[in-house]
Simulated scan of single mutants.
Amino acid sequence: MPRVLLAAIAVAVVIIDQWSKHYIQSQMLPGMSIPVIENMFHITYVLNPGAAFGILENQRLFFIVIALVMLGLITYFFSHIPDNFRLMRLGVSLLASGALGNVIDRVQTGYVVDFFDFRIWPVFNVADIAIVTGVGCVIYTLVFIPFPAEYQEN
């Protein structure tokens, strides 16, 4: 997958993430919930001061530093991913764009705006979807795709 396409996907994820969060913030009040499918899927405006499941609440600086370090490492190591590992490259791009989307929120407000609410899972956002999908792509590649001989130990 060409780097330009991966960059375009990453930029699109950040734009969609930030636009959707802005829309929720402009149309709803924190805690407000709109049922889409009653008792199954709601749009619920949540300001999350922590990570997944609300862990490590109010550790804004910690999350910003971790995200920036991760983005730096991804930027540095991306060129070392073999070209034929397209799924891994896509996964890393999604992971980076999701992390960037959430770090933008943390820098601006100290919170991450979440709104997809399936009632059996913590409320999440577009950036979280990108992160989880990206991690899934990376794990799938590491587990199921054989590395080229030049990357294997003798």
Rank of each mutant, 00 (worst) to 15 (best):
W19Q: 06
S20E: 09
K21S: 05
H22T: 05
Y23K: 05
Q25S: 10
S26A: 08
L29G: 08
P30H: 00
P30D: 05
G31F: 00
V36P: 03
I37D: 03
I37W: 14
E38W: 13
I43Y: 03
T44V: 06
T44Q: 07
A52K: 01
F53A: 12
L56V: 06
E57T: 13
Q59E: 12
V65S: 13
I66D: 11
M70K: 07
L71C: 13
F77Y: 15
F78L: 10
H80S: 14
I81Q: 08
I81K: 05
D83H: 15
R86W: 13
L87H: 11
M88I: 08
M88S: 14
G91Q: 07
V92A: 14
V92P: 00
G98E: 11
A99H: 06
A99Q: 03
A99E: 09
L100R: 10
N102G: 04
I104A: 00
I104P: 05
R106L: 03
V107M: 11
V107G: 01
Q108P: 01
Q108A: 14
T109I: 06
G110C: 01
V112E: 06
V112M: 06
F115I: 00
F116M: 10
D117W: 03
F118K: 00
I120H: 10
W121V: 02
W121Y: 09
W121L: 04
P122Q: 00
V123N: 02
V123E: 00
V126A: 02
V126P: 01
A127Q: 01
D128R: 07
A130M: 02
I131W: 03
V132T: 15
T133R: 08
V135Y: 09
V138E: 11
I139A: 14
Y140Q: 12
Y140F: 15
Y140H: 13
T141H: 09
V143K: 15
I145V: 15
F147P: 11
A149G: 03
A149C: 04
Q152V: 12
Q152A: 11
